[in-house]
Every structure is written in structure tokens, then in C-alpha cells.
Nucleic acid binder design. Structure first.
Length: 347
DNA sequence: CCAGACGTTGTT
DNA sequence: GTCTGG
DNA sequence: CCAGACGTTGTT
DNA sequence: GTCTGG
């Protein structure tokens, strides 16, 4: 599947890769540790709207979320873009220890009383805990995705899975490229958005519910550099056969967890054993999509045009890119999208 | 047993 | 063609 | 995933 | 660390 999950951009229209500040918030009576998206291009840093957009989970659960919607996708990209910055808001010292409730970590807890979800950023591309070399970029095989049918028999994933290192990857959506004669047509694929949510988005402020983020099933692992240094958290996105509606685009898709119950079970490594959890990994039909410009193909392009619908067979019209508008422009583009059954028009 | 891989998608 | 960087 | 490189010696 | 191929 795609690499294609991008930052939302902040209030002022920046679309640079954001980083996070770690905070603990109370949601539905539970303490949830999360990372607040933080825009390095803004003098003040924080972005109220980005934070709301992160749509912090409301269920009191055990587990790890990876927030990709606004997350760092490529460590090296981020390191180059943000030299000298602290990228990993959740440090080893916080995650490795059990402390007071506010700082209790979910990771590797066996007991069932652990009741937090942690929202953190991880590096995409799972580095197995046994990896021996000193630099994770030396990993000579691709671990961005993990086939659901073989994940329990692969050395790179089996260990993490059996240890309960299951996570949920949050994103606005993902991209797939349809192979055609004469090129590749990218599509943006995402959860259907309710009218309720869209209306409230346009009102903004207190009523904000935001985009319904896609929730994908992932596996993570922790890796310690042999020469010492900070623990690195990495993850892979599980893939399944494409569901019927999107199979004309591509024959594979990420495993999507549709709804709080599926998410709850996937994250609850203490109560839901591996064998039960893997049953959650199925293709879903509850998904919509629209074609987008090949503008998205170039990684350096990060603007509303990446998600704006295009009409196929029509020559691209210059829009002036993402000079203004930021996240608002993006959501407004998506607002124009009819939510379902668009396949006939584009097929 | 040791040595060497450890992965996916897509394409053929 | 295949690997790396983003 | 796509885009772009794919190399060395020696010089600055 | 663990599995596969020889």
C-alpha cells in the first residue's frame, strides 16, 4: 500500500512535517497520554486545530496508537527538515517504567489493570528487536507492510505479535496507485464522513469533531541501538486483500479496524490473545475514495492538492498549490466529495 | 549441524 | 534492473 | 508508495 | 531471536 499519509498542516497553512509535545489528558474519565501535534514552522509552535483534529480516542483502553495523520513518516526526512529537534516525544525512560498513573506506560504490561491509551509517534518500517546493525536504515528488507496471512510465521513480526505489540495507525486516509497503460493513477481512500461531522467542521470551534480518521491495524517493535542510545519505536501496517469496491484500483489494502470495539480488542493485548486478535484483520467495505492528481506522487509536494478530487480524463488545471488555506483548504476540498458509490463515475 | 536470511508490492 | 532517500 | 540515483579520485 | 536451506 501507500506511503501516502501526510500531515494536515497547521492553522496558518504550513504543511511541514509536525512533531509532538507529550501531554496527559483526561478523556472519558481516563488518563490518556498523547502527543500534541506541533508545527515547527509556527513561531508559537502549537496548533489548536491540529490538536482537535487528532481526535483523541475516547475509549479507556490498553494499547498504543500511532498518530500518522499528523505524524512523522520518515525519520530521516524529519531529521533533515528539523535538525536538532527532539522528534520522539516519548522517551525510553518514560516508556520503560511503571510510575504514577499519569506516566504509566502501556508498553509490555502484563496485568489487566493497565487502562491507558498512548498516542505517540513511531517510525514507519518495523525494525525487529533482534536487528544487529548499528543503524536502522541498514535494514535490507522492506517492513512497511506485513501480510496478514503470513504475519504469524515471519521472523520479523512473529515475536512482536506474540508479545502483544499491536497498535493502531491513525491517518486521514491512504493512497493507492492504479496501474494503467500510460501511467499510474493515484486515489485517496478514506472512511465515509458523516454530514454531522462535516457541518461541525465548517462551524469550527467547540463543536469540532473533525475528520473521521482511518484506523489501521499495525504491529510495532522496540529496538535498541547496539551501541547504545535511545530506544526506537517502529511499526508496520498489516495488509489484506483489497475489498470489492477498491479492488479495481489495487489488489491489496491496509487492514482497517472499523469502530471502537474492533480497536479496543486489537489494542487490549492483556485480555485479547493473539489468536483472537488476528480475527479482526479482515478487509472492510466501509471505505470510500476519489482519484487525485499525480501531484501527490512527488514526496516534496505537500499541499491540499494531494487530496483534492480530480476528474479523470480531464486535463489538470493549475490551482496555485497550497500557498494559503492549510488544513481548511484540504477539508474543504474533501467536503466536495460525495461520500459513497463513486466507483461507477471513475471506473 | 551451520550459514544466512529475516519483506512487500508488482510483474512476469 | 535495483537500491536508496524521502 | 514514487523519484531518482546508480561512482571514484582528488581537490576545495 | 528464530526460521529456512543446504
Amino acid at each position: 500500500m501507500s506511503r501516502g499519509i501526510r500531515g494536515r498542516g497547521c492553522d496558518t497553512g504550513h504543511r511541514q512535517i509536525p512533531a509532538y509535545l507529550s501531554i496527559t489528558v483526561q478523556v472519558a474519565g481516563m488518563l490518556v497520554r498523547c502527543s500534541v501535534p506541533f508545527c515547527y514552522s509556527c513561531p508559537e509552535g502549537g496548533s489548536e486545530r491540529l490538536h482537535k483534529t487528532a481526535n483523541i480516542p475516547t475509549l479507556p483502553l490498553v494499547g498504543v496508537f500511532v498518530c500518522l495523520s499528523t505524524a512523522v513518516l520518515w525519520e530521516q526526512t524529519a531529521q533533515q527538515a528539523l535538525p536538532g529537534r527532539q522528534l520522539w516525544a516519548e522517551s525510553e525512560s518514560k516508556l520503560g517504567e511503571n510510575r504514577k498513573p499519569q506516566t504509566v506506560s502501556i508498553v509490555q504490561r502484563q496485568d489487566a489493570d493497565s487502562s491507558e491509551r498512548v498516542l505517540m509517534d513511531m517510525r514507519w518500517g518495523l525494525v525487529p528487536s533482534w536487528f544487529k546493525q548499528d543503524n536502522p536504515s541498514k535494514l535490507q528488507f522492506n517492513t512497511s507492510n506485513c501480510r496478514s496471512d503470513t504475519m504469524l510465521s515471519k521472523s520479523s513480526y512473529k515475536g512482536a505479535l506474540l508479545k502483544g505489540k499491536r497498535c493502531v495507525v491513525l491517518a486521514d486516509g491512504f493512497y493507492e496507485w492504479q496501474q494503467q497503460s500510460g501511467g499510474k493513477q493515484p486515489y485517496f481512500i478514506y472512511f465515509p464522513q458523516t454530514k454531522d461531522t462535516m457541518d461541525k467542521e465548517t462551524q469550527g470551534d467547540e463543536e469540532w469533531k473533525g475528520w473521521r480518521l482511518l484506523t489501521m491495524a499495525g504491529i510495532f517493535d522496540c529496538w535498541e541501538p547496539p551501541g547504545g542510545g535511545e530506544m526506537l519505536y517502529t511499526y508496520t501496517i498489516i495488509t489484506v486483500d483489497a475489498s470489492k469496491d477498491v479492488s479495481f484500483i489495487h489488489h491489496r489494502m491496509p487492514a482497517i479496524l472499523d469502530g471502537d470495539e474492533a480497536i479496543r480488542k486489537w489494542l487490549d493485548f492483556a485480555e485479547v490473545p493473539t489468536q483472537e486478535a488476528v480475527k479482526l484483520i479482515q478487509p472492510t467495505e466501509n471505505i470510500v475514495f476519489h482519484p487525485v492528481s499525480t501531484f501527490v506522487n512527488n514526496i516534496r509536494n505537500n499541499a491540499p492538492e494531494c487530496v483534492a478530487p480530480v476528474e479523470l480524463g480531464v486535463k489538470k488545471v493549475g490551482t496555485g498549490g497550497g500557498l494559503a488555506g492549510g488544513s481548511s483548504a484540504m477539508v474543504m476540498s474533501l467536503s466536495q466529495v460525495r461520500a459513497a458509490r463513486l466507483q461507477e463515475e471513475w471506473q
